[in-house]
Design a protein around this nucleic acid. Structure first.
Lengths: 339, 339
DNA sequence: TATTTTTGCTTAAACGTTTAAGCAAATATA
DNA sequence: TATATTTGCTTAAACGTTTAAGCAAAAATA
């Protein structure tokens, strides 16, 4: 039943009594092949159910037409949406993508990089794990001479393309919104400072707090892994303060969810007693009651831009990569938890 | 800066004045190569930062060591967890995976299959899109002579390996639980009947309702795409009935969420007025208030088993595939929405 | 009509690896 | 000591494609 031997261009060539080279050219619509031959080749190819061997052509051309994608995880709406839009753009240009997830582990991320390089990808689009500090493994990609594009979680030091939102400005937007609602003591459950985006959100928070003449206190600013569990922990911590905050801005939606759970368990009313804002606009933020105000990171644009940037880079010969940041403006999605 | 020319086994061979064949064998620990040579080869390989060209070896060996995975979407906890566990098992055996998503579209799924076959994957592990009825494209995989493993959404007609839970029994479990809580009119927002798993849930629902001597009425059984939106629509429909149900069992968590939203908007108390059960045990089911009772589908086991089944098949020569179902027992996770 | 250009193919090498076959030297066996 | 076996390599072909170079025939140009 199964067609044991696969059809190759040689088989087609034999049928038509022409050379394999002619077949290859015919299939690629080479101008030096007659319309008649092209037609005949395509017909036979169809009949024999010819499927090109991608490995052979990739080997010969020195290009695999595969692009590696590394994300911390795929089960977040942000990342899966970015991936979908990367795919959409690259598909049109004949590229396929290999998705890998680091599960926020540095070790896993290194393995993923090795795997992708081993698979001879033509480039890598990545968002770094929370844990990642050492950038040597990423240098490995650069030294291979293939484009590296970072998005969301990236580092300036690598001097490559980066696409993300303006985290500093986003914090300003959030603090402004809360200040306008009359909040006086705004706490921030921030991400790890060593990750650039979270550090920028923290800086933006601090500067905005100052701008609006609000109290800037150490106890109102906590560093978190931003998981649900840690969100719960940090919220409990904030509730234990002598002088409780009247608003909490979490740098991630999952942390905001954990915070909300703790608030509800303690029968603290959101938004009446404490206003709450998350970050990332995960779908569940609109599902909860109260729905959680959050920040839309424009995953579609980020994905499309990352793919387009890759396409530009891959056409360059020789490849030069420099720090090239594309910063998008984020959008505050106001929901019940903050007004 | 970038190492323009990549190191090949020939370069290593030149340094040591031996043949490329010897280098290849040394790197693969061939018994016919002396320990001394092996050591020397490995040292030079390290020094020259040799990275094997996967395309070349795959072409020569006729194996890519890539496995294609097709899922309806990655941003569901079930699928992303299955993928993670597939990866875990395959990684140990030297396989990498290429993840593609059909976005529940039949057309996209066909494209994905073409893409994966084009990339010369050694096998495909798939869960079918909701839309998929025509199985011809899947036959294409079989006719290529590579293993095809289905999970969750699969079809008997393809006569291949299948891993999933016992949907019929799961419905029994749910109806039993509701009946024990004293429910008398249990509605079912089911998936499309043409999808085997949803059909089984419907059959299980009907048989269980009969078993517990409850009314089996056409208006209590509706067919849905199981999205949030459709869940809302179907719940509104059920509320419009003269004789409302006192329990709703939705065949998917997202549909259950939509239903919950409508119930809350209409100030119908869950579980007091109407009990609600979902399916899939998505994380958000535990985040909502009330938390939603749901069914755990053992994504870890499904993923690991799918990978193991692939490994078994790929070792077979010649490959024979027959209908081979592995059915796992699901687990009811009782939460606030049903008691 | 003679020369140049274009058309439509062929030949052969290359991509980097693996592997079957072979062969000399070293070692074991009779 | 003569023969058989093992060791440790080499040579060469193969995987299926692409592509540079080349060449005869046809068409265009002078």
């Amino acid at each position: 039943m199964a067609n044991n031997k696969k059809t190759t261009i040689k088989d087609i060539a034999n049928v038509l009594n022409i050379s394999a080279a002619a077949v290859s050219k015919a299939l690629h619509d080479d101008s030096r092949i007659s319309a008649k031959t092209k037609e005949a080749v395509k017909k036979v190819a169809e009949e024999l159910n010819y499927q090109p061997n991608h490995l052979a052509s990739a080997l010969r051309r020195g290009k695999s037409n595969l692009v590696g994608v590394i994300v911390p995880r795929t089960n977040s709406n942000f990342f899966s949406s970015v991936i979908q839009h990367i795919e959409e753009v690259l598909d049109k240009e004949g590229y396929n993508i290999i998705i890998t997830q680091s599960s926020e582990s540095f070790e896993k991320e290194c393995k993923n990089i090795d795997t992708l390089l081993f698979t001879q990808v033509d480039g890598i689009i990545a968002s770094m794990a929370n844990e990642t500090i050492d950038l040597n493994y990423y240098e490995k990609i650069k030294s291979k001479g293939i484009p590296l594009i970072l998005f969301d979680r990236g580092e300036n030091d690598l001097n490559v393309d980066y696409i993300g939102i303006d985290d500093y400005e986003s914090s300003h937007m959030i603090v402004k919104h809360l200040a306008e609602q009359g909040c006086k003591r705004i706490a921030h459950i921030g991400g790890y400072r060593h990750t650039r985006i979270y550090n920028n959100r923290i800086k933006g928070y601090i500067d905005a707090i100052k701008k609006y003449d609000l109290p800037i206190e150490d106890e109102l600013l906590v560093e978190s892994s931003l998981t649900i569990e840690d969100g719960r922990k940090k919220m409990s911590q904030l509730l234990a303060l002598k002088n409780r905050p009247d608003a909490v801005y979490a740098a991630g939606d999952y942390a905001a969810l954990g915070a909300l759970q703790v608030l509800q368990e303690n029968e603290i009313k959101v938004p009446d007693d404490i206003r709450l804002i998350g970050f990332g606009n995960e779908p569940f933020t609109s599902m909860l009651s109260p729905s959680i105000t959050s920040v839309n990171q424009h995953s579609e644009k980020i994905g499309a831009l990352a793919a387009q940037t890759f396409l530009e880079r891959v056409k360059m010969n020789p490849l030069v990569q420099t720090l090239n940041k594309i910063i998008l403006e984020a959008e505050l999605i106001e929901r019940d938890s903050s007004k």
